[in-house]
Design a binder for these strands. Structure first.
Length: 424
RNA sequence: GGGUCGGUACCGAAGUGGCCAAACGGGGCGGUCUGUAAAAUCGCUGGCUUACGCCUUCGCAGGUUCGAAUCCUGCCCGGCCCA
């Protein structure tokens, strides 16, 4: 018998699961859910694993429920947090839920017959729950002793800041979610990151006590990086799924720049490629690391999945142009396209006539350099490029001849810091 | 409250009258190399209408001196010890 657990296992995504889950999955097609915290108005790549987990289950014939935490988001999950967090306003949470619901829907199939995906919001039942009902129907089933034993609570009990009653209660709400979905949607499995194990088992426990029935949990590992830094962060912050927050180009670049040591693991985690294909790519990393076939494939697969074929093509073109060489062959249209998400500023065209403007001043004005001295040093150090051509002359002036089709000038500092000047 | 040691650039840390815009290390930025990597290596890392020149900076405020990060006075802040 093979089940989805076998797939998750070879992908390294099975961190821990309830006893009996494998037998159940071999026997029947089930409904499962994963919760998504609406703490921002976009999902980021940290959410890819849960999204793909739901999608993988769906491909195996199971029914996925993506649960937006419109109710639990009002409280805040203490798991993995060392400090109490400020509460988000109700309006903020509601707005965030609306934004991420659209993103969640993109990954799931809602026309899959009897195992079509569902998209729910726990605000629909949690905000209607009265305190008395909650205490009688939920609180009565779990002891404080049980709750205190959870890692997420224990860690905060030991800290100086402590834990508020609000966050302490969080696990009961999540447990109630599970019980609610069990009762109304026949949901038997809750999945999540390994930090969710405590909350998930609380739900299983509640179902056992309230209904005398069995439910299951499954968690995947937290994504790590070989160099020990945090996954999903770049200098400019999180990598978002919303193209307005993180352009497809930057998204593509994020994956393209993954470390050799991590790329095999990420191919298993974040793509649909088969074990054999990944095996082959991993070999190419060892034999021809300079080709970076694995990184390119990873970037391609994930970008296509999140942003689609067209955006992928553009991201690849932009990467080619930027890392390929001079920009002289490009038209203004290409430039506008490729540098869409690059920081930009405007410059009145007439300033470029005649003598033009000093490069030093321009660098300061558009923020590439912090002062004229800084700009001078950068230029003399060979770190400044005009339209991808190095310019080490501190007295250099920019004129209309440096523009691309009289419309743009592309300034660059170092390998990757671009700035687009639009002539107006 | 008393004693004592200390506060130097992004961080750590030298310097204790001129040779100090301030050693050295880390971090950051950039060049070369390379695989848009790592390592290595080199340069930069206060400001100035363009600079073997000027201005500002060594906890803060005054003072001594031709000249102070460096000496004196007061104040503020931190570590340790004693109450």
């Amino acid at each position: 018998m093979t089940t989805i657990l076998d797939e998750l296992r070879w992908r390294g995504l099975l961190y821990e699961s309830s006893d009996g889950l494998e037998e159940t999955l071999a026997r029947e097609r089930i409904t499962l859910y994963i919760g998504f915290d609406p703490s921002a108005d976009s999902l980021h790549i940290g959410h890819l694993l849960p999204l793909l987990t739901l999608a993988r289950f769906q491909r195996w014939g199971h029914t996925p429920i993506a649960l937006a935490g419109g109710g639990t988001g009002l409280i805040g999950d203490p798991s993995g947090k060392t400090h109490e967090r400020p509460l988000l306003s109700k309006e903020q949470v509601a707005a965030n839920v609306e934004s991420i619901k659209r993103q969640l829907a993109q990954f799931l199939d809602f026309n899959a017959g009897d195992h079509s995906a569902k998209l729910l919001n726990n605000a629909d039942w949690l905000t209607r729950l009265s305190l008395i009902d909650f205490l009688r129907d939920v609180g009565k089933h779990l002891t404080v002793n049980y709750m205190l034993a959870k890692d997420s609570v224990r860690a905060r009990m030991a800290s100086e800041t402590g834990i508020s009653f609000t966050e302490f209660s969080y696990m009961l709400l999540q447990a109630y979610d599970f019980a609610y979905l069990f009762e109304h949607h026949g949901c038997k499995l809750q999945a999540g990151g390994s930090d969710q194990w405590g909350n998930i088992t609380a739900g299983i426990e509640l179902i056992r006590r309230a209904f005398g029935q069995r439910a299951y949990g499954l968690v995947y590992p937290l994504v790590t990086k070989a160099d020990g830094t945090k996954f999903g962060k770049t200098e400019s912050g999180a990598v978002w799924l919303d193209p307005k927050r993180t352009s497809p180009y930057r998204f593509y670049q994020f994956w393209y720049n993954v470390d050799d040591a991590d790329v095999g693991k990420y191919l298993k985690y974040f793509t649909w490629l088969s074990a054999a294909e990944i095996e082959e790519l991993e070999q190419s990393v060892t034999q021809h690391p300079e080709r970076r076939a694995a990184q390119q494939r990873l970037a391609r697969e994930v970008t296509r999945m999140v942003h689609g074929e067209t955006a992928l093509a553009r991201a690849e073109e932009a990467s080619q142009a930027l890392f390929g060489g001079a920009l002289t062959s490009l038209s203004a249209e290409d430039v506008a396209d490729i540098f869409e998400d690059v920081p930009s500023s405007t410059l009145p065209r007439h300033e470029l006539s005649g003598e033009g403007v000093a490069l030093i001043d321009t660098l300061v004005r558009c923020g590439i350099a912090t002062s004229r001295s800084d700009a001078r040093r950068a230029i003399e150090g060979g770190g400044i490029y005009i339209n991808n051509v190095q310019s080490a002359d501190a007295a250099r002036r920019l004129t209309i001849n440096d523009s691309i089709d009289g419309q743009f000038i592309v300034l660059r500092k170092g390998r990757k810091n671009y700035h687009l000047i639009r002539l107006v």
